[in-house]
Design a protein around this nucleic acid. Structure first.
Lengths: 160, 160
DNA sequence: TTGAAGTTCATGCGTTTGCATCTACCTTAA
DNA sequence: TTAAGGTAGATGCAAACGCATGAACTTCAA
């Protein structure tokens, strides 16, 4: 008897969770996080992916942190001269966040070494096709969890 | 020109990370975590998967928490009557952890509702084959990060 | 145009986390 | 047998987190 789709989905999710936890622990044990914690690196990396400055709440979508925690993490990075915070001229409530030269340098330095560890951990056990499959599956899952930008009406209706 | 294996690996890992963060946020937003936080549930779920009692450091392998944090989380769960901590008769340093009846009940109650959300999120966007692929890939990645149990000599040699 | 509702980010506060370290116990080798 | 080294878990303490809420600004409908 085949597993139900619900069972299949839960098994797949558990597998993803386990892989995530195992690899995160492995990466955390690497001696490359002396100047930047993994979370700080996550923020700098996300900023480095965008060319232009981005908003705090945009940054928050990619980072698994509450809004206040992210706000203060960015504050600390700004105090260390790695991130630049300027008021958004187009929206008086918002911030425009960007990397400083030092921030970009720190991201590249840590990122380069981290990428080596990631490649070792992943490429050693997956085939090219499996890596492509994982990338594709991950994209689908991430897209599903972020139901694209909804209009206000749509979102309201979804709640009601 | 094809992407290098290193690039493929890093892209796949980033995709996994993004999917993880997106789905975690989505699940965290569900109104089922009133009696148990996600981390607490993670611990109870891990305990529920093992039939016999397990050790704290075994539990720690599956949970993304430092040893002291896990020690205190288990302490809190024990105070709430959800987890039972007894000294290990075979190893005076260790603990034997197990679910109480209330703990098992809480895990089942939250787990049942959570599984529905997981199934919705995952099965809605992946085919059966993709879910099977994800499960397989995750297993490989998790196994790779835990290089099986090493002997003391092997581990020493790896350091030297 | 204006007021109500929504959004963005910051802040107060209690809780939880991680790091360093400690104690207790086990293991190994001389 | 015993001392040296390793492992399991607990604890002190500062840092970081999440929740609730506040302040500033934007959006939208009347």
């Amino acid at each position: 008897m085949p597993r139900s789709r619900s069972r299949l989905a839960n098994d797949a999710w558990e597998s993803l969770l386990t892989a995530h936890a195992s690899l995160m622990k492995r990466f955390a044990a690497e001696p490359i996080w002396d100047q930047l914690s993994m979370r700080e690196y996550d923020v700098l990396y996300t900023l480095s992916k965008h060319d232009g400055p981005i908003r705090l709440f945009e940054l928050g979508r990619g980072v698994l942190l509450s809004q206040p925690a992210l706000s203060r993490l960015v504050e600390r990075l700004a105090e260390r001269g790695l991130v630049e915070r300027t008021p958004d001229p187009e929206d008086g409530r918002g911030l425009r966040l960007g990397l400083t030269a030092a921030g970009r340098e720190a991201q590249r330095s840590v990122g380069g070494r981290h990428a080596v560890d990631v490649a070792r951990a992943v490429a050693d056990v997956l085939t090219d096709e499996e890596m492509r499959q994982l990338e594709s599956i991950g994209r689908k899952l991430a897209g599903a969890a972020t139901p694209a930008q909804q209009t206000h009406r749509t979102r309201k209706e979804a709640v009601l």
